[in-house]
Write a protein that binds this DNA or RNA. Structure first.
Length: 342
DNA sequence: TCTGGGGTCCTAGGACCC
DNA sequence: TCTGGGGTCCTAGGACCC
């Protein structure tokens, strides 16, 4: 009997894999992609391949740390366009299967399928992706997005794993809460202080305690995560963004107010051009300043009217900038536009 | 040791209104 | 002298994800 399943497809070491496809001589060597490819500069690892991970290199690690842990690694710059092209090829392959495909990032997607052989379907997907893109993927099988997403982690690399109500408790019960999709390390530490050290503990936790610690919506939602019963429907419609932003970390800290203003103005104009090309209008402009060593604040202003005019965005950003006390060195500046939802 | 860039969603406090 | 309670909006910050 055909049943409904949610699958989660996740390309193995996606960015590194795309790079190695066009530089076959790198296969088998440790490869780290991040920043502009110079590991002496400010920047972090986007993806490391499995050879580099053996040395303890992982995503979001500072490039300098990665270089120290694995000095022999090949460091490559991020090339968005190449990954977007590879991603499109993967998604087109997934859409060739019957069912709903929801893109969830460059290298992952959810699918809602109806089948009497979920594992067989997952294997067919893996075969098609490999044939058409030369990329390898893991597939998680669940009854909702949460189960499918968590399942994929057990299938990596290249495998298939099923996680449903039948085995959720057995597989997840003893794991720490940050094994769940939506709970990170900060929440896990806070939970540990409350005596919640496993998914099972979280499931058994007192609702009032969770509400007090994490808020009226988030607290109960965490318990649903622990039960493996959360996640929205799989939808094919592309997501309509609510904001657009640009930001930049400078290789040397900025100290001159004039230079800081010029950079914020430049980013605001760049953002305006992006909004024009997407036919979107900003209703609010928010400026972000990260002071050295690493302290971040934001201030925003409403635009006089919804707009994507270069002058309006620049004036808004500069107005927001006046709310900061620029008395310390600045390592990052950013401008975000909150968009009119039509 | 040093910590990117692009996003989303939730929370909490204060303003404001009835 | 003392001033309730609820709703909504705005704003900044924090957590999380890829």
């Amino acid at each position: 009997m055909a049943e409904r399943f949610v699958l989660h497809v996740d390309i193995d070491e996606f960015i590194a894999a795309v790079e190695i496809l066009r530089r076959p001589e790198l296969r088998g060597k440790p490869v780290v992609v991040g920043g502009d490819g110079d590991p002496t500069k400010r920047g972090v690892v986007s993806t490391a391949n499995y050879e580099a991970r053996k040395y303890g290199v992982h995503s979001a690690m500072p490039l300098r740390t990665a270089a120290r842990r694995c000095p022999d690694a090949v460091f490559l710059p991020v090339d968005r366009e190449a990954y977007e092209a590879a991603s499109s090829a993967v998604m087109a392959t997934l859409r060739s299967f019957p069912g709903i495909v929801e893109v969830a990032g460059w290298d992952e997607a959810f699918m809602e399928v109806t089948t009497d052989d979920a594992e067989g379907t997952a294997r067919s997907i893996q075969r098609a992706v490999r044939e058409r893109t030369s990329l390898s993927c893991a597939v998680g099988i669940g009854r909702n997005k949460l189960q499918a997403k968590v399942a994929t982690g057990f299938g990596k690399p290249g495998g298939v794993f099923r996680l449903t109500d039948e085995n959720w408790h057995e597989v997840m019960g003893g794991l720490p809460p940050d094994s769940l999709w939506g709970i990170g390390s900060k929440r896990a530490s806070q939970m540990a202080e409350l005596g919640i050290r496993t998914v099972e503990d979280l499931l058994a936790a007192d609702d009032a305690l969770l509400v007090e610690a994490f808020g009226p919506n988030t607290g109960p939602w965490y318990r649903r995560l622990a039960a493996g019963r959360a996640g929205s429907r799989v939808v094919a419609e592309p997501y309509v963004g609510k904001s657009r932003s640009t930001e930049r970390t400078y290789q040397r800290n900025l100290t001159e107010p004039q230079e800081i203003r010029a950079e914020v103005a430049r980013q605001a104009r760049e953002l305006a051009a992006q909004l024009v090309s997407e036919h979107r209008l900003a209703v609010r402009i928010v400026v972000k300043v990260r002071f050295a060593p690493f302290f971040t604040t934001t201030h925003g202003v409403a635009t006089e009217e919804p707009s994507n005019d270069e002058g309006v965005l620049e004036r808004g950003a500069l107005a927001a900038l006046t709310r900061f006390e620029l008395n310390r060195p600045v390592r990052l500046l950013g401008v975000r536009a909150e968009l009119l939802l039509s």
